[in-house]
Design a protein around this nucleic acid. Structure first.
Length: 557
RNA sequence: CGCGGGGUGGAGGAAUGGCACCUCGUCAGGCUCAUAAUCUGAAGGUCCCGGUUCGAAUCCGGGCCCCGCAACCA
């Protein structure tokens, strides 16, 4: 019974370059998930794109003296190249939020919320420049700190004394664009009435939360217990999804609606849905298959800062838009990856670009190490010396070497047709598949990797225990018997590493002359599938170690 | 006292109040098919202070530190 699996990957914000924290936190987990589900025969739709709107983009544009649109194009092109050409991430569609399709769908969501009575109009105070005749985002305003009197401090926190400055407390606010004084003035905005939606969201969390990690569930329940508060959905900006003014009745229209935009927190998550529609248009696929009915599973991947937008707000938006739509099942949220214990930060020079490390070490090595240290339950650290230790000590010495020593011993031989995998090996292989399936299904990738490594350890032990290199010379019958077990493990590993290490898996299929490991055996039929395959193995003359050691002395980082 | 998450050998991770476990590294020994690979064994640990308990990594109180919500950054 195959499933339809939607994989929503967080939309990278296009105001800067991506680093390996993004890769370890959500890009890689999502890709492993997609590859796994395809390998067990499920139909997968994996979508994401560039998150284009919001103040940080306009700031970046001002800094570089180009338009926001140019900033978006620049980074979108870079990210797309990185994902497609370098990382080979298996997106079915990677689009962007300033695509006309997304803008229209976002406006549809907005209208549905308005019609459903889940939006209301209220006033907030914002900085306003009379000379420019426009409202300014907080980030464009500087002034005097009300606590220590420092001049030219930011509007939200004092650079000098570090205290947080509440909205409106800043003294003598000025525009940092023109230097002129600004006013603090009322402005009308739409607010989402979350308290009104809370009961429905609570009901959803009650069941869906069981699929989440404990800390994700707890944090979400904490927000609900506190009580959801109305949240402004629009901003005084000119960069964002326009308010669909001509579709709003006059009495529900806010003042100066044309100079306001729907804010980024509301529109970005809608991308999962709008991208599904766009994918269907481009590929003549049926998006409805992935969003309505039974036998669906929806995964979402993101960093911890994005939590409530996916466990509370996005489900809320979906249920208002159409109560039949499938809501998120697994919301897989990772903590942050640090670099040598420090947070990534451009200004502090804590930077590690994805393409730099991937070009140097290759995808599989990076995928392996990042999975090993994946910040699944708490922040973790990328440490250079640890990369060498883990790659050389685990991936190369344990997994790669097991494959290589086995195939080296077997090279030039052929098994008799009667050889079969024995009981002990059967249970080792079945166990590895069962655990891998469970862990992959629930996005526990470190545990999945562990269960694969357990199987290679079993293989290594077998070689040693039976002194296979001696048997090869002294006892052909027993040699074949043990070799049958070893080759069974090799084939199993070929399948098992496929979602995680696609390049290694594909090299292994070349070395063994087998057709490829991208379609896993049916659940429970692993041994029946593998038994005939091992007799087809002909070790290629071009056999080389599956993974090679890193030479620390050659490194320049 | 704004809300929330977290602190376990050198590194990364487990542990319904019940013998602190796993992987890597280190050290000692074995093996030589394999990439100085592999196999066996050993040393080394619950952030601090107090409390509850026959028994605490776990529960309670107090502290210290890191992180998210919330600047450049996920």
């Amino acid at each position: 019974m195959h499933k339809k699996v939607l994989i929503g990957v967080a939309w990278p914000y296009v105001n800067g370059e991506l680093h390996i924290g993004h890769l370890a936190g959500y890009l890689l987990p999502a890709d492993i998930c997609a590859r796994y589900h395809r390998s067990i025969g499920n139909q997968v739709l994996m979508v994401s794109g560039s998150d284009c709107f919001g103040t940080p983009i306009t700031l970046e544009a001002d800094k570089r003296k180009i338009t926001p649109d140019e900033v978006v194009k620049d980074y979108h092109q870079k990210d797309t190249h990185l994902f497609r050409e370098i990382l080979d991430l298996s997106y079915d569609l990677y689009t962007l939020t300033n695509h006309p399709n997304h803008i229209k769908v976002t406006q549809d969501f907005f209208i549905k919320m308005l019609e459903g009575g889940y939006l209301f109009i209220d006033k907030t105070k914002q900085y306003y420049s009379p000379t420019q005749n426009r409202f300014l985002p907080d980030r464009y305003v500087v002034g005097e700190c009300p606590f220590c009197g420092t001049e030219d401090t930011r509007s939200d926190q004092c650079d000098s004394c570090g205290k947080l400055i509440s909205h409106g407390e800043l003294l003598h606010p000025r525009s940092n664009l023109t230097g002129e004084d600004v006013e603090f003035k009322d402005t009308e905005h739409y607010f989402v009435d979350w308290p009104k939606l809370q009961p429905r969201i609570e009901k959803y969390v009650e069941t869906a939360g069981r699929n989440w990690k404990d800390w994700v569930n707890n944090e979400t329940l904490g927000w609900l217990k506190e009580g959801l508060k109305p949240r402004a959905i629009t901003r005084d900006l000119d960069w964002g999804v326009p308010i669909p003014v001509d579709r709003i009745p006059q009495d529900l229209l806010i003042e100066n609606a044309n100079s306001k935009r729907i804010y980024v927190w509301f529109d970005a998550v809608i991308g999962y849905f709008s991208a599904s529609l766009l994918w269907a248009t481009i590929n003549e696929g049926k998006w409805e298959d992935f969003w309505f009915g039974e036998n669906l599973k929806h995964y979402y991947f993101m960093g911890k800062d994005n939590l409530v937008f996916h466990t509370l707000f996005w489900p809320g938006q979906l249920m208002v838009y159409n109560s039949e739509l499938h809501l998120p099942d697994v919301v897989s949220i990772n903590m942050f990856l640090n670099l040598d214990g420090k947070q990534f930060s451009k200004s502090r020079g804590v930077v590690l670009k994805i393409e730099d490390i991937v070009e140097k070490y290759g995808n599989d090595l990076v995928r392996f190490y990042l999975t090993l240290i994946m910040p699944e339950t708490r922040d973790s650290s990328f440490v250079w010396s640890d990369l060498y230790e883990k790659v050389n000590g685990v991936l190369v010495a344990n997994l790669g070497n097991f494959i290589h020593r086995t195939l080296s011993l077997y090279k030039g031989q052929k098994l008799a047709k009667t050889n079969e995998i024995n009981e002990v090996t059967t249970s080792a292989i079945r166990n590895a598949f069962r655990k891998s399936r469970d862990f992959l299904e629930s996005c526990q990738y470190r545990n999945y990797l562990d269960s694969v490594l357990e199987l290679t350890a079993y293989g290594n032990l077998l070689v040693d225990k039976h002194k296979v290199w001696e048997l090869k010379k002294t006892n052909t019958e027993e040699f074949e018997e043990v070799m049958t077990q070893l080759l069974g493990v090799v084939v199993a590993i070929g399948y098992l590493i496929n979602p995680l290490l696609p390049e290694g898996s594909s090299r292994l299929s070349n070395y063994t002359g087998l057709r490829g490991f991208d379609k896993w055996p049916e659940d429970g039929k692993e041994i029946e599938t593998i038994n005939p395959l091992i007799k087809e193995i002909i070790v290629s003359d071009g056999l080389k170690p599956l993974f090679t050691k890193l030479d620390k002395t050659q490194d320049t980082f």
